[in-house]
Amino acid sequence: MALLNSDKNDKRTQEAERVAADAATAQTGERVEAEKTGKKRASSYWAVSWGIFKKNRLGMACLVVVCILVFVALFAPLLAPYDPDFQTLTARLQAPNSTYLLGTDEYGRDILSRTIYGCRISLSVGVVSQIIALVIGFFVGVCAGYFGGKVDAVLSFIIQVFSSFPFLLFAIVVMYVMGPGLVNLYVALGLLMWTSTARLVRGDVMRLKGSEYIQSCILSGGSSWRIIMKHLLPNCVSTLIVVSTLGIPNAILSEASLSFLGLGVQPPTASWGQMISASQPYIQSNTYYSVIPGIAIIITVMAFNLLGDALRDALDPKMRA
């Protein structure tokens, strides 16, 4: 055995020498290689997906619309011609004119400014509630799919219970219990919308769980946490992106419905749903008052929905040739 070991050591030193020699030659070629590597990295999963996405004209158009919406929401104070809450009682319920491009409401507030500010509310509700839903949904889904057995049975039951509530009715109850307000709206919608994420993640994880790279990680003594964060999460990202992009319009619609019912954003804060609600008595005399926030909702929801579809086509490897 000793003889064997010394033999092995000899081989090691030889090997070390060879490695050193290789390294020396490698270094000269390294810069050239680095350039190649840079180029090669561009063909990663995300780059390929972006290439597919770029070819989808409708998807690109929706991306542009979404970017414009985000821009409008971020720079609302700069873009709005008037203070959205400033009342000019002498100029109530005006039709669109040169002073008020989209007219005024029953308190003489500028509808254009209110629509621009409403964009902030809608987008923030969509994004924040989806982030809450995503975090809850991912962890419930991962635990159900990864641990399986009884954990899966219990969690799947909870998912079933949550998704079998009538959505709006449950939202109304939650908002009623917690009281109206923007933060409560985020939480209520987040608590309601995680089930679809959880279901999809559970399915993904059950499929990935048997993968050999996860077996290899288990063999190396990797913890469940490591497997979830290093192996499962990166492989679920495309699912998560698609689910949340498709979830955002739902959240925006729910915000509009709840605000319309008076349980969401409270006046005088401008929100599209609440504007439609306020315009109700004037729907025959001043149609444009209700139509404008309605159009804003339609454009936003459609843009996110179609963007979600385009992303799914681009990110799903099965859709690729």
Binding site: Y213, S216, G221
Partner: peptide
């Protein structure tokens, strides 16, 4: 103890496509 002992034993898989995490 199992983790420690497993360091001495490793596995090479049959399918070179599903044995590597595509995101690493």
């Amino acid at each position: 103890a199992l983790t420690e002992a497993r360091k001495k034993m490793k596995l090479i898989f049959q399918d070179p496509y599903s044995s590597l995490n595509p995101r690493m």
